[in-house]
Design a protein around this nucleic acid. Structure first.
Lengths: 332, 332
DNA sequence: TTGTAAGCGTTATCAT
DNA sequence: ATGATAACGCTTACAA
């Protein structure tokens, strides 16, 4: 691999001049510039990002931490962030946290040690305090899908409570009064916000909340399967089943079919997220649209604005969920 | 951020000793080692990976290039690779190629410039020659889902032709003789291999291949929608529709339902890949299982073996597709 | 076992 | 406009 030395040699100029040409951040005469460019081409020179980053303390890359690499949800988020940054000539370094404190911290430290210019984090295990502390450090961070008062201007969130409210309200408006709920894990904030919205809607319709119609799932398909089975076994009747996300709803649909239940005739089912295949399920899933890709884009824009001086970008911190009515929930 | 200097100061030892402790690759007395560790803890020292990598020409991280970050297929692949490497204490740096030559090359150069210890590539636009050339360089590379004779020992592939053969054979065995096909893009190798298998099966059953029952799609859901519409419009009857992948098949299912066609009674449909929601579609999709997550794991293992000296790992270069029979294809 | 010092490939601050 | 040269934070012979 050719280095800057060899380029400067071949071009007959100093190191500094070569550096100036690559960064074009200082006047270099057209003639010498051309000599340098020619030398670079001839040698197939590619700057060493590591050395560059060590010397300049910049890296033109931003770290991205997601819980998992697979799954429809994070895929969209990563895609949004990456494309936005790439268009700006920046690179993204992705790593995972697996919703585990140690792994999240480890991932963050990895990204920091790589000299990322900024961090975009979708973390769920690490504490608010840790993030606030981290925020005081030198590297700007953006939190996605989590709201922390003390650093509100660094957060990109969805109003999950509103979403929870909207979906349950739509079920109530269809006449349902016996409504079961499969939630996400209790320790996840978005999960709780959705439940909060759910309860608010119930209250508005004077429907008492029944703890026995609540099952705590884990946001996976299997969780939905288990949830339906468990709720059915409990023996308390319900005509609608609101799920904390689409993946669990898809598990519910599959299990219901297996048990010979007709959705939506015997049971209305709803999801949350509007993942890519929600409209491909049978029946097509009534759900809440979660503009996660756009939010990924926005997180990137926030970084571009703050770190890379794209002043004119408009930042929007909170996104609004929307009801998407399809065929899995009907009038009772 | 504390540096190695401050640690050596506080511990009262030399730079080199601190370095030895962090890498524990040379004898250090227990006493001094403890002093160093204490100093590190006290300062909250975190080694600077950039400097480390510059000095040692290693980075403990491997570059991963995928066409897209979203989608069920690559998500599984990245997940497999990442978890395998992470368990070995290595990190993965992910970037995208978007099936575009320039972007793929750009992505590869980015990874190289980051000093990755190895590259795992899922590339489709770049030429064989380019990869062969790249392979001659200093950084070991692994190619996933693409077979290149000259570097067969660096490739992890699936026998796509066999898969294409198996799925069409299963349809033929159900008595179908008028079989339409929606393929992936012509310029993708896997797409062509699948077609090749398809044709072989037809031949075996003495069914002439009909070019007019062939539609070239793009491996996306929309491609499937358009494909079905186009094939129907052509007016040539068919009782089965074999799709080049599951995403297109899902588009076909949705469009068929929209048109009031009953799948599988009026039309048998098959996919390829067995993506995560293939069993959630209605009807559940008969398809070919593509063990992409395992292949992601294997690519990582190949790197671990070659680059990180885990000698005992067993490497498997070619994976075998398996027929998964569900409900979308029935006896005619 | 420990220390010294020369890199690693850049950037950036001075001079000129 | 260009050139020397000292960082950047670490690894690694080579000495001691």
């Amino acid at each position: 691999m050719a280095t800057i030395y060899q380029v400067s040699d071949l071009a007959g100029v100093s190191l500094a001049t070569v550096s100036r040409v690559m960064n074009n951040n200082a006047k270099v005469s057209d003639k010498t510039k051309q000599k340098v460019l020619d030398a670079m081409k001839e040698l197939g020179y590619r700057p060493n990002a590591t050395a560059r980053s060590l010397a300049s303390n910049r890296s033109d890359s931003v770290g991205l931490l997601v819980p998992e690499l697979h799954g429809p949800f994070f895929g969209q988020m990563m895609g949004g962030t990456e494309s936005e940054l790439r268009d700006a000539g920046k690179h993204v370094i992705i790593t995972t946290g697996h919703s585990d404190v140690d792994k999240e911290v480890d991932g963050i430290e990895f990204l920091l040690s790589r000299n990322c210019d900024a961090l975009i984090l979708h973390v769920e295990a690490v504490s608010d305090e840790y993030l606030i502390e981290l925020h005081k450090g030198k590297v700007p961070i953006v939190i996605i899908n989590r709201y922390i008062e003390e650093m509100a201007d660094r957060c990109i969130t969805l109003d999950n409570a509103l979403g929870g409210y909207l979906i349950t309200k739509s079920v109530l408006e269809k006449g349902h009064r016996e409504i079961a709920y499969i939630s996400g894990p209790k320790w996840k904030d978005d999960s709780n916000q959705r439940i909060k919205g759910h309860k608010k809607a119930l209250e508005e319709f004077n429907v008492p909340f029944n703890e026995q119609l609540m099952y705590q799932g884990d946001f996976t398909q299997t969780g939905g399967c288990d949830g339906l089975t468990s709720l059915l076994d409990a023996g308390i009747p319900f005509t609608a089943l609101v799920c904390g996300n689409d993946e669990m709803a898809s598990g519910v649909l599959a299990t219901a079919r297996q048990k010979g239940m007709d959705v939506p005739k015997e049971l209305s089912v709803t999801g949350f997220d509007n993942i890519i295949y929600a409209s491909l399920l049978f029946p097509t899933l009534t759900t809440i649209d979660y503009p996660i890709r756009q939010m990924g884009h926005m997180a990137a824009k926030l970084v571009l604005k703050d770190v890379y001086d794209k002043k004119k970008l408009e930042i929007r911190h909170q996104f609004i969920p929307k009801l998407v009515e399809r065929n899995s929930a009907i009038i009772v």
